[in-house]
Nucleic acid binder design. Sequence first.
DNA 1: TTCGACTTTGAAAGCGCTTTCATCGCCGCC
DNA 2: GGCGGCGATGAAAGCGCTTTCAAAGTCGAA
Lengths: 348, 348
Amino acid sequence: MKALSKSKAATIYEVAKHAGVSIATVSRALRDSDLVTEATRARVRAAVEALNYTPNQSGRALAEGRHAANGIVFPDLTGPYYAEVVLGYEEIAAELGRSVLILTTHGRRDAEAAVHDLAGRVDGLAVMGNTVGDDTVRAIAATGVPLVLLARPPVDGIDTIRTRNERTAAELAEHLVAHGHRRFVFAGDPQAAPDMAGRYAGLVKVLRAHGLPRPDLRPCAYDVEAGERVGAQLMADPPDAVVCANDEVALGVHIAAEAAGRSVPHDLAVTGWDDVLAARFAGLTTVTQPMRELGATAARWLDERIGERSTGPDRANPRRRVLPTRLVTRRSCGSHPVETPDPLGGTA
Amino acid sequence: MKALSKSKAATIYEVAKHAGVSIATVSRALRDSDLVTEATRARVRAAVEALNYTPNQSGRALAEGRHAANGIVFPDLTGPYYAEVVLGYEEIAAELGRSVLILTTHGRRDAEAAVHDLAGRVDGLAVMGNTVGDDTVRAIAATGVPLVLLARPPVDGIDTIRTRNERTAAELAEHLVAHGHRRFVFAGDPQAAPDMAGRYAGLVKVLRAHGLPRPDLRPCAYDVEAGERVGAQLMADPPDAVVCANDEVALGVHIAAEAAGRSVPHDLAVTGWDDVLAARFAGLTTVTQPMRELGATAARWLDERIGERSTGPDRANPRRRVLPTRLVTRRSCGSHPVETPDPLGGTA
DNA sequence: TTCGACTTTGAAAGCGCTTTCATCGCCGCC
DNA sequence: GGCGGCGATGAAAGCGCTTTCAAAGTCGAA
């Protein structure tokens, strides 16, 4: 019960010696093989206890030819969006006996190398959005590591899960037009992420269908501060509606508008995307996405692909899935609400 | 450039054969050792490219005797709190050349075993709050894996980083008392987490100092729904102030109060903890914590401990740090504000 | 009592990599 | 022209574990 001084972790050899058996027996006893006597198993367990043994998982991974770990790559954890995806992913991966390695590419220049390195540590990898280029994705897929792309356009024969952007954006746009809005601004960068491109496209399509002018495009980062800056610029000559790439931007625009003495939705409508908690309190019209499910589905698909790898057919027919999203109308989208009895709840 | 059909990842042996060198040379070429000719290196690189080689990190870890990975254990990613901590941790770990393995103990019964397993995959481990018992913490520390505890009372000689709870809670309580509040409720469970215990203790101390009755203790979970339930119960006979364990609970109470026709802060004050984005929009008085820094500091300390392990002295003198927190007063704490020119910003 | 069939255990190979140590050329120098 | 020295490379050991294969016990039946 001491061993504290040793500072070097015990190995299976020491456990074997302590228990008076071979390392093979120790391994079997710990793996719940029924090839060992109860008595032997007890002795081994006692030795494990005494030496405070923790199996080295690298050794195990090497011997088994698998890592028992999955990776996930995303731009950043900021905001609840990615956090929820990761959580759903981890939950299912853990159920399936896999650890989860995370990697954010946020402010890195060596992102591609880091992802490659990660690929060498895992049995399967989920990649979110525009974190790395298609070339890297293809190269990793070619090494045989199962991959699933999240919120990103499909690449070759690789499994992909997305959320519905264009159609729900169109629905949102129709709603705004029905409110009487005519001059639109889109705050966000369609080039920055595929999701954003879809949202922009949905908006553009509807405006065109109604013979309205194209939205004024204001590329910006995806945080409150960026929204505030865009909002402040707009306040000189406010449009009818500002469709924002996500809730953070929308909340920033909201703040800027009020700071400039404009009222939302009286003077202008503002909408977001993601339905963060704050959206509820700001009365922000937005869109909910099943983020947890996005992560969970990725983990399940990967597990299946990893299972397939040894047997059966390989990446013949890639899986594709688009998860539904849902418009949540609150008061920020227009001054004459047709809905929303509960100002905090939003419509179902 | 194909190898797609193989489905089996290339090893260093195949690269060596392809390049016409030994595996030692391949290893050296890839590790940027200056022991190889530029010409050789180029040949190796070409072979790596051609075979789409990704080094197996388990093999490397085993050979090097290190994992080049850190772990972090936390209850759940829900809410921005843990996400931010993880992000700060990952950022620094990545800078230091370490991957990050996450593990949530949320709804698990085998949490202790999972943490043990994780300990066998990493060079260092951060453990948040009440995720696992002290025994497990001690057992892992005894194996020689450097550990750092976050938001948790110190255990033996193990490094610990916390945020200031009791003192800032006292400050908050003083503020509320100054507002004239007398009957307090604490919504949250001091038994559930050490942080919560500290917040409760700070409140109790101040009330006693003022000769006021002890707060009415309402244990609850830490999400909006739990807050709503507690809030609904309280509305029959509203107290002067509801001090909540975190912002989510506070926002729930807020919702329940308004649903019951009570106004915050006119009829009762509500305060939270964490300063989530929504707190700004709900005008919630709360406390900010340097969560990112919490994670970042943990990653740095671990790196140092890992470095020490080979040389120098071991866990003789454990490190301890308490990160400062800061009261953010907004309108929810009292109806006659002494501060806060900007209703959305809060005071510095 | 003896033999075969199980059951339990041990010896050893091998997973993919790093690294020490030895070897092999090659250069410059005496 | 021979030799020491050095730079580049290869052979092989070993990291901690799992697993195959063989050996050693154990038991029941003949």
